[in-house]
Structures are given as structure tokens and as C-alpha cells.
Design a protein around this nucleic acid. Sequence first.
DNA 1: AGCTCTTCCTGAAAGC
DNA 2: TGCTTTCAGGAAGAGC
Length: 291
Amino acid sequence: MPELPEVETVVRGLRASLPGRTILDVRLGRTDFIDDPVALGEQLPGSRILGVTRLGKFIAIDLVPGGTASHTSERLFLIIHLGMTGQLMTRLASDPVPPHTHVFFGLDDGRELRYTDVRRFGRILLVPESKIGMFRERLGAEPLEITLKEFCARFSSRGARVKALLLDQGILRGVGNIYADESLFRARIHPARIARKLTQTQLARLHQSVRTILTTAIRLRGSSVSDYVDSDGNRGEFQLRHRVYQREGKPCVRCREKIRRVIVAGRSSHFCPRCQPAPRVRKVQRRVNKS
DNA sequence: AGCTCTTCCTGAAAGC
DNA sequence: TGCTTTCAGGAAGAGC
């Protein structure tokens, strides 16, 4: 599923071929995941693409309005979240259309930017430049930019499980289930540990592990475990390097113990019980029946 | 306030 | 074999 490395790979692909193009038209299929579908058709045709950037797991396409709205409108950001099964690809308008393709942006070079999403957990919205600051403020820090000091500040005061905090987009933006589990394994921290009980050494290890895992995953163009493909339709390769994610019952690469899966923060969490020791639980007094 | 659980959706895979 | 059930997950919203 698309997390930071996958979204970064898509963004790099789009950045290579979209800037300078003009959106000619917008065609919509199902729209229940689009904040304001009417606005897409009204505001996008005629607009020119300036650039493509990533904000956490969001793709931001920077546009200059050029259509009927150009005399009033400021710059605009087309924001796309891929959810779980979303795919954003450029194709020739004449290419066959895969099922569950719900949005088509016709371009001035004979191609289309297409959004396909089986489960429609994704999201599409338009944000005017004047409000992009507000949008950005609700997101946490970029995991590849945050300093150790700031990282510790965001974790060491919290009573939630470390896994829940890694997934919280208001703390770090871009980490999802795969990279949370892989980072925790690398840092040798159990996903159910309470964040404020982690030592400085453990937090430092986690900070560095998140960076290492994400950087490596970007280099391998993301993890393709189900539907993920990049903007050219190619799969990633980081799934071949997964140490715990979806490896339940298989031997730990470090100690051979069987990888386990438990639910933490409502999410499947994969870990090695030997390398990532469980948090100490106050033993419940067990009353022994004496008679 | 802070944290966890539930809900949305579909198709693949497991279960019977 | 074929039908039914379960499971996956991002993030909003409900619940505790």
C-alpha cells in the first residue's frame, strides 16, 4: 500500500513528465472519495502544471489556472491521497482503461493522468494556495527531515504505544504499517511499547531506523505487496527486503525465532519476540484455589 | 485531553 | 467444487 516511499516514487515519475503540461478536461466516474467533484471540472480545465511535490502521503500537483476562472483564481494545488489501493498513472488516451478507474485528466500531449482505486480509500481535493499552509500545518514532520531532538520531543511525552504514534500522521507524515513494523524491527523495539517508557538510546535507534528503512525503500522504488505500482505502472522491489511485514511464522533473519503477528493500535503488527522483547506487564494476581 | 476502536470498500484467500 | 466468511488497511469519527 502506498506509504512515503511509494508516494515519493510516484511523485518523481510524475515530476519527470507533467510540468509544463496543460489539463484540457476532466472526466469522472465514481466520486464518493472526492471532496468537491464539481470543482474539479470547473477549475482544472485550462490550468497549467507547474510542479509535483509530496506532503507525507499526499501528492500535490501545483497548478496555474488558465481557463475561465483564470482572471479571479490564485494558484491551486490538486491534492491526491492514494489510500490503500490508489494508482496514479500517465497513459495514452487511447490505452485500454483498467477497471475501477474513476478520474481522467486529459493532457495537451495526447496523454491522460488517470486515477484508479479499487477500494476508494483514497482522496482527492483542491486546495487554493492561500490555504495550503493550513493544510500543511495539520501534518506532522517529514520523517527524513526531523532531527533527533525533535523526534524525541514528539515521542517521549506520550503514553500511547509506539506503533500508534509512528502511524499518526500528525506526528510523522508518511509512515504506514509496513514501514512502522520494519523500522521497529530494525530498532529492536516491540510495537506495543509505551512511547514515554523508551530510553533515549531506543528513541535514537528508532529515529535512525525510520530514516534508513525509508531511504532504502525509496531507492528500491517502494514495496508492491498488493496493488501498488508507480506512475508508469511498474512494481517496486522493497517487499523483497521485508524482515517482518507479512512474514508471520517465518524465521527471524537475525535469530531464527518465528515472527509473530499481533494487533496493536487496531493494526496488524509483525515482530520478532526475541529481538523485540514485549513490554513488562504488571502480573495479574492469580488466585490459587487452595481447597 | 488523550488514546483506542470502528467504519468505510473490494477482492483474494481461507474455511467449510 | 462452490459458497460463505475473513482479512487487509488510511484516516475520520465515535467511544471510553
